[in-house]
Amino acid sequence: MLRLEARPVPSKLMGYAAPVIALAITVVFGTLLFLALGKNPAASLRVFFVTPLENARGLSEVALKMIPLLLCSLGLAICYRSNVWNIGAEGQLVVGGVAAGGMALLASPDSTRAFFVLVLLAGMLGGMAWAAITALLRDKFNANEILVSLMLTYVGGLLLIYLVNGPWKDPKGFNFPYSKTFDAAAMVPKLFAGTRLSWGVLIVVVVLAAAWIFLSKSKAGFRLQVAGQAPLAARFAGFSAREGIWASLLLCGALSGLAGALEVAGPLGQLTPQISPGYGFAAIIVAWLGRLHPGGCVFASFIMALIYIGGELSQSRLGLPAAITGVFQGMLLLALLTADTFIHYRLRKA
């Protein structure tokens, strides 16, 4: 019999190797799944890991998917490092999208080209406001942030559906539940003609650098993480845990809201009943897979973007439903947790 034995010090090597091992496990189980479904595993895996990267258009689509994933996962990484279990990035993204959409609908053909900045700001504020509810209830009422942030995700989703079916429905839209398409001034400018990539890419690069400096180099970021991971030490040092709850949730709300704004004022161009295929939830996996580190999150959001695009492609190329994306996402996180065990433990013969 084998048994787990606690390592005297956590293995640094396993810390870096675990995501790779998790990917390998996911690929193995994916192969088994494709075999069980009667598909050629090599050809199927190719659809997920090679086809999206074969041409410029595919690459730009991968980058497009990475934007919301990376923004949300950076926010979540800050939360999890502060020991705040925010799992409502999806709701914060959706409400950010709603706020951005509301602002975008105010634009007219005469609006200045800089109007999109207001749209992005509205998105950030919307996401922050939504996250602030969780922070307030956690801070003042001691309410569990996992449950509150998740419940708010359902409320945010319903709010969006209500708006596009009611007050914000396009009167000329043949009764479809869509808002009118935004005026050009409200849209984030395109980066290259011919792709769907926008200035969002540049914004993400700036946010990424800022997140890295905040988490690794700034005193404010340090206070946050001490407050979360060693509350007693933080108290002696005079760092407040309340500050950590508010700061991490508001930052995550702002980043997730920005992600929502970039989606609606980018590839979507209008509000629809569903503006996110679960980016906020997938970002939880991205944050863990990326070791709660901004650099790691880039790698992890790349993998997650491939899984999304692979899912879309598998519908046309393999005749498999796009829902397979969710299966892979879940498997990846389960595999990662398994591999993570061996950071703190090793197997010994009993």
Partner: peptide
């Protein structure tokens, strides 16, 4: 638990 919920949601949809 969260992983189980995400996996369950994905697998059941599929």
């Amino acid at each position: 638990g969260l992983a189980l919920t995400l996996f369950g949601a994905g697998l059941s949809a599929f």
